[in-house]
């Protein structure tokens, strides 16, 4: 096995509808399979900077999150390392720290994991306390299936 530490991270806030997609996805992913000890599932919530170590200390990282793609179709989007923007915007609050900032910092530190993939869906409902929308729920299995296929590939490398 090539990768000693693989982190599967779920991002988002479970209190706000489809915002919680990433967290729900890794819960389903973890429950539904037997993985070697090198694979760690992390409920990252909306922790921002706290999550830097989970990215920088890994050889391969898979992130599940709600995302806003350019075309905003209702489907599962998969982006690999080189397709992702990395930037450090000035912010009003340290709470605004997003995945792109984490990637920017990891690159500046020279500690980007060898493999990085983002899997997500565009959110339909961000209503408080409502859980995932029907649409997001339907896409969840497919997102997890795509993630599992990628993970299996990583484990075979």
């Amino acid at each position: 096995m090539k990768y000693n530490r693989i982190n599967v991270l779920g991002l988002g806030n479970i209190l706000f509808g489809d915002e919680g997609f990433g967290v729900e996805a890794i819960r389903a992913f973890e429950k539904d399979g037997d993985y070697p000890e090198t694979v760690q599932f992390v409920d990252g919530g909306t922790q921002g900077l706290y999550l830097l170590d989970y990215i920088e200390s890994s050889d391969a990282v898979m992130v599940f999150d709600a995302l806003i793609p350019l075309d905003f179709e209702s489907r599962v989007y998969v982006y690999h390392r080189e397709e992702l923007p990395a930037f450090i915007h000035r912010k009003m609050s340290s709470h605004q720290m997003g995945l792109s900032e984490l990637l920017g910092i990891a690159q500046l530190h020279g500690r980007m994991p060898e493999r990085f993939v983002l899997i997500g869906i565009p959110p339909r409902s961000l209503d408080l306390g409502s859980g995932l929308s029907g649409e997001a729920r339907e896409l969840l299995d497919e997102a997890v299936a795509q993630g599992r296929a990628i993970l299996q590939g990583w484990l075979r490398e």
């Binding site: 806030n13 709600a66 995302l67 000035r90 709470h95 959110p123």
Partner: peptide
């Protein structure tokens, strides 16, 4: 303005987190 507001360490962007593929400016 940003300097003074930052000095309070605002907590108002709490709890939302959607990845923006466009890298759009937020301020």
């Amino acid at each position: 303005i940003i300097r003074t507001v930052h000095s309070f360490d605002p907590c108002l962007a709490c709890a939302s987190h959607v990845f923006d593929m466009n890298g759009r400016e937020v301020t």
